[in-house]
């Protein structure tokens, strides 16, 4: 079993952090993992992405030319990566910002109104956890509890422990929306 996911969105939507949380959760779940960011001169408002590979054997390539899933948080991300997703793969997309339909008929599409759901939880900043919650439910790759723990540890390490409850709620919202 090897799963690879590209998380892509505007800089500031938190795809880099969401990828790290997923990688940490995968590792805590007993999987081999790699996390690779696009590390160009990106900034808030630009585009950012990262690739997470989760496998039951040591990961060879940390890059995927046909990822088994795509989390597209904005229109350019869907345009850029839609064609790369493996047949039978999953596209979790942010229907708050992406208006066009997915052209591929051979992938599972999971539209989530991420901005509205994040706003409901209390802040646009947790949109990445809404997306991640939806992705793990749609793919069953790791349990929700493991992702919550990984997220909490990561935020606490960065001195952002007070944001853990809101991010937990966002994970649950995304998870329950699938």
């Amino acid at each position: 079993m090897e799963k690879s996911v590209i998380l892509a969105g505007f800089g500031g939507q938190g795809v880099i952090l969401a990828g790290k949380v997923l990688a940490q959760a995968g590792m805590d779940h007993g999987l081999e993992v790699t996390w690779f960011p696009s590390y160009g001169p990106e900034m808030r408002g630009g585009t950012a992405n990262c690739t997470v590979v989760l496998s039951d054997e040591p990961v060879a390539s940390p890059l995927a030319d046909d990822p088994t899933a795509l989390i597209a948080m904005n229109p350019p991300s869907l345009d850029k990566f839609e064609s790369t997703v493996a047949r039978g793969g999953t596209i979790v997309l942010n229907s708050s910002l992406i208006e066009r339909p997915v052209m591929r008929a051979d992938v599972k599409v999971v539209p989530i109104p991420m901005n509205e759901m994040a706003a409901k939880v209390g802040s646009d900043l947790v949109i990445n956890m809404v997306a991640l919650g939806a992705y793990i439910k749609a793919t069953g790759i790791t349990p929700l509890a493991t992702v919550k723990t990984a997220m909490a540890q990561m935020l606490e390490k960065d001195g952002k422990g007070k944001f853990v409850p809101m991010n937990e709620q966002a994970l649950e919202e995304g998870y329950n929306a699938v």
């Binding site: 790290k20 590792m27 081999e32 993992v33 790699t34 996390w35 690779f36 960011p37 940390p62």
Partner: peptide, 8 residues
């Protein structure tokens, strides 16, 4: 790649 990527 090896500088930036994360792995256990």
């Amino acid at each position: 790649v090896l500088g930036q990527m994360m792995e256990p």
